[in-house]
């Protein structure tokens, strides 16, 4: 996904953009509302992540102005305020959703997906490998005449494999992306999810191979 991050704290902006980049997203960072306007004029984004307190103004006003100008880019507000009244204001001003700091990136991704899904989605969310068609917004998998729904973690696991077909992903890499960092996980858990996903793609032209000692790989059935 292509993000515009509007955040004035440089350290945080840099960290967030690195972190999102790790999951394969493209990020532009604007340190002020003025910068944000410029970015919005020249590029289009899947999601704008908008901090609410910026040096040159209030994010809510920016949002309202944006909507008034007919720009309906999906916006997720990133608030440091916990109280629900500011959240409600944000939604009223035209944000699609909000998430509070510190950002849980899995949750952020889930919310982005939910926002895009609500807005009707677009075809570029369908990815293909072998005869698999994977719609990441609907968490749907199609091959041949089959259509299968994926649960959240199955979908995210499949997303990891889709991000590098034929690449080997270690259990550690998978665990890092599949679970919230503070969750306790065991190797066994990943085996469980891999097994479930294998069941879901059973009968297709793709398979998840176990590469002994190294990890797993999505490959075409030979």
């Amino acid at each position: 996904m292509r993000f515009l991050l509007v955040e004035d704290n440089e350290n945080l902006a840099e960290a967030v953009s690195t972190r999102l980049g790790m999951d394969g997203h493209a990020i532009d960072t604007a340190g002020s509302l003025a910068d944000a306007w410029e970015y919005l004029d020249y590029s289009s984004y899947d999601i704008v992540l908008l901090d609410l307190t910026l040096p040159d103004g209030d994010g809510r006003r920016f949002l309202a102005q944006c909507r008034a100008q007919g720009n309906d880019v999906p916006v997720i507000a990133v608030t440091a305020q916990s109280d629900v009244s500011s959240r409600v204001e944000v939604l009223d001003a035209g944000a699609d959703d909000y998430i509070s700091k510190p950002v849980n990136f899995s949750e952020l991704e889930a919310r982005c997906r939910a926002v895009l899904r609500r807005r009707g989605g677009s075809s570029h969310n369908v990815q293909r490998f072998a005869d698999l068609e994977f719609d990441t917004l609907r968490a749907e998998l199609r091959f041949g005449n089959e259509a299968r729904e994926l649960r959240n973690r199955e979908m995210r696991l499949l997303e990891i494999f889709f991000s590098g077909p034929d690449r080997i992903f270690s259990k550690v890499q998978i665990g890092d992306r599949l679970f919230t960092s503070s969750e306790e996980i065991s190797d066994n858990v990943i085996e469980v999810y891999v097994a479930r996903l294998r069941k879901k793609i059973e009968g297709s032209g793709a398979q998840i191979e176990t590469v002994r000692g190294l990890g797993y790989r999505l490959s075409e059935r030979g």
Partner: peptide, 13 residues
């Protein structure tokens, strides 16, 4: 929250 966010994100990285 803002500094916590930075710590958390950097740590995840």
């Amino acid at each position: 929250r803002t500094p916590l966010s930075t710590v958390q994100t950097e740590t995840e990285i």
